[in-house]
Design a protein around this nucleic acid. Structure first.
Length: 518
DNA sequence: AATGCCGGGGG
DNA sequence: CCCCCGGCATT
């Protein structure tokens, strides 16, 4: 009737999922946004807002949940929290051991009283999320599992309101730690590289030092830009730069954990943290992280969404990109130097660029807009998601958001109140630039003989050559109810008939696809 | 012919 | 609600 677009009940945004965290375990959370759409060479990245307040980008393949993998493809780590059905009831337990070969997951469960039992399940019987119950429980759920696993290290308090500020106490390190207690990973190694090595404290320290703690902010411009750094999930740029750096400091494992160990961070640290509320402070370190470095030379900045790492040499940055963003660290791949699509040189104008980008990187819950860098713009790929996200972002520029669809909002306990200083920020970035330059598309270097549904999906996304005008808000396309057939990115196409179970519900019911809305 | 999905069922 | 499907428009 009114809207041109009938939006589905659910899109990926807002989907409850369980996503892989740096510690190699999955944690419950909500898809917050598409952090980086599929490109020819890379997997889609989603911004996942974990129930415990953290937020980070996760590759689609590392997300379990409706619309994503149904079952983890890797070995479940010890102490991974899982859910299984036992006697018709869903119970929660911790993985004690997972034998891939035997397809056997040994789970230890705490029963009502205090007896602990172990059960064996097949991988596909194991869920990483509660099946039905939602938010409240996630939040409430006494994590028995953990309680006994390690003696509760500190009196935890429950944050009741989600928007309380924690003035003096900033969750400094947005990263969890590999279980300091019982991550007896060793139980059966089968050459599992899926495990995440913890980084040396030393190295971590170095990294942090070299990156984020430049003692002063040399650039005069910084002051002016400070404002822009204060809000949306600041940890974003923070996180990613350290992730990034870990990439080339540690040499292996794409997902190292560079943060220095903190004593009390316990294993799957899901519930121990006070809810993190974004505080408008602490902008300076990050500032320098991005802008503040030696000024006089060409440097390179990663333009990957959510990352704005700056490197001094072309090689470094490419390496970083390869490691941190492409899923591979082998140097052999990417023959055609695709990395160069993801970084940009910083020179005189770098101030603008980097600030802009870093902002774009942090945006998370602000209007999308990604590489606002005009130079590189010419060779952009698919910017389609800009439009999409535009619609899902409930907050942010109140002026231009069409309003109306706000269900993307994590139906759960975690919504961070974000206040964006209206005005300038938006101005300084142009959200919707797009440069459809068909020539810029390289033929995808596909090297997968057999495609999983996921990969098909990715291909599709990568290939679909769409770019039209950005929506004109008040203009309805026409009076006809059937809109011109949309893009070919529908569940059926993407997943194929064989994988019907992966389709979005709507597609199954022959309704309008909710997964690939356009 | 295949796809996308509306409108209209039934449980 | 959840699920199914006839049928039609679009490709």
């Amino acid at each position: 009737m009114s809207g041109t677009k009938r939006l589905a009940k659910r899109s990926i945004i807002g989907t409850r999922v369980s996503a892989l965290w740096q510690d190699g375990r999955y944690y419950p959370g909500v898809i917050r946004a598409l952090a980086a759409e599929e490109t020819l060479t890379t997997k889609a990245l989603y911004t996942v807002h974990f129930d415990d307040g953290f937020e980070t980008s996760v590759a689609g393949k590392e997300i379990i949940g409706p619309g994503f993998q149904t079952v983890p493809s890797t070995r479940l780590k010890h102490a991974q929290k899982v859910f299984v059905t036992m006697n018709g009831r869903e119970i929660c337990g911790l993985v004690a051991n997972h034998d891939r070969k035997l397809d056997e997951v040994v789970i230890s469960v705490k029963q009502g009283n205090n007896e602990e039992t172990t059960i064996n399940r097949k991988l596909e019987e194991v869920r990483l999320m509660e099946s039905r119950k939602s938010a409240r429980l996630v939040d409430q759920d006494t994590d028995y599992s953990k309680l006994a696993d390690l003696q509760l290290s500190e009196p935890k308090r429950r944050a009741v309101s989600h928007s309380i500020d924690v003035p003096g106490f900033k969750q400094q390190r947005p990263r969890r730690h590999r279980d300091s207690s019982g991550d007896t990973e060793g139980s059966e190694h089968g050459g599992n590289f899926d495990d995440v090595e913890m980084m040396d404290e030393t190295i971590a320290a170095m990294v942090l030092t070299s990156l984020s703690v430049s003692p002063k902010s040399p650039t005069p411009l910084n002051t002016q830009f400070k404002v822009e750094h204060i809000e949306p999930t600041q940890e974003h740029s923070y996180v990613s730069s350290s992730v990034a750096s870990s990439g080339f400091y540690s040499g292996h494992s794409e997902r190292d954990d560079p943060s220095p160990p903190t004593l009390s961070e316990s294993a799957p640290a899901s519930f121990e943290f006070p809810r993190r509320t974004d505080l408008p402070s602490d902008s300076d370190t990050r500032d320098s992280d991005v802008t503040g470095k030696s000024e006089d030379r060409t440097r390179f900045q990663c333009t990957w969404r959510g990352c704005s790492l700056v490197c001094d040499s072309c090689n470094e940055i490419e390496r970083h990109i390869r490691r941190a963003h492409f899923d591979q660290d082998s140097d052999l791949e990417l023959s055609d130097k695709e990395e160069e699509f993801y970084y940009t040189e910083l020179e005189d104008d770098k101030d603008v660029v980097s600030v802009t980008q870093s902002f774009a990187g942090m945006y998370t819950s602000s209007p999308s807009g990604e590489q606002p860098d005009m130079h590189e713009m010419a060779r952009t790929f698919d910017h389609d998601y800009q439009r999409k996200e535009e619609k899902y972002k409930p907050f942010a520029h109140a002026s231009s958001v069409p309003s109306g669809d706000s269900y993307g909002l994590s139906g759960a306990t975690t919504s961070i109140p974000i206040t964006i200083p209206e005005g300038q920020i938006k101005r300084s970035l142009s959200w919707q630039i797009q440069a459809p330059s068909p020539g810029a598309l390289i033929s995808p270097p596909l090297r997968t003989p057999k495609l999983t549904p996921q990969e098909r999906l990715q291909q599709h996304q990568a290939q679909s050559p769409k770019s039209h005008m950005l929506m004109s808000p008040l203009k309805s396309a026409g009076p006809h109810h059937r809109k011109p057939r949309s893009e070919v990115r529908k569940c059926r196409k993407v997943y194929g008939m064989e994988n019907r179970d992966q389709w979005c519900t709507q597609c199954k019911w022959k309704k309008a696809c909710t997964r690939f809305i356009d």
